[in-house]
């Protein structure tokens, strides 16, 4: 049951994040939207993991491991995007 509910939440977050990414023009808000989108994707993956419970485990560990590394890489991507936006803002300030 939880799996379905959070899977659907993931789907909603994907929609919300994608909307923000496509509609907003402020670079920082786009980065936030990208993170919402990513969170939605991880939740869908998490729902898949929860559905795969078995062998005495409450969830399938393979997707969980993938989500873990995915979160770390998404964070790294966010830092790069932020650095680029800040650098660009500084370049624009100088004219």
């Amino acid at each position: 049951m939880s799996a379905t509910i959070f899977g659907l939440l993931g789907a909603a977050l994907v929609g919300i994040g994608l909307f923000g990414l496509l509609v907003r023009r402020d670079a920082l808000l786009r980065i936030l939207a990208f993170n919402l989108l990513g969170g939605g994707v991880f939740l869908v993956f998490g729902a898949v993991a929860r559905r795969g419970a078995g062998a005495g485990l409450p969830a399938d560990p393979v997707p969980q491991a993938i989500i873990l590394t995915g979160i770390v890489v998404a964070f790294a991507a966010t830092t790069l995007a932020v650095a680029l936006v800040l650098r660009l803002a500084a370049a624009k300030d100088r004219g």
């Binding site: 990208f34 869908v44 729902a47 559905r51 660009l88 370049a91």
Partner: peptide
């Protein structure tokens, strides 16, 4: 400045591409 702008645009496309791909991976595994 122009190359920084080009890089930001590229990064946005690339990250969107990655995340859509990963969503597909999740469904495929499911």
């Amino acid at each position: 400045r122009e190359t920084l702008e080009a890089a930001l645009r590229y990064l946005m496309f690339a990250l969107l591409g990655s995340v859509l791909y990963l969503l597909g991976v999740a469904l495929m595994y499911g």
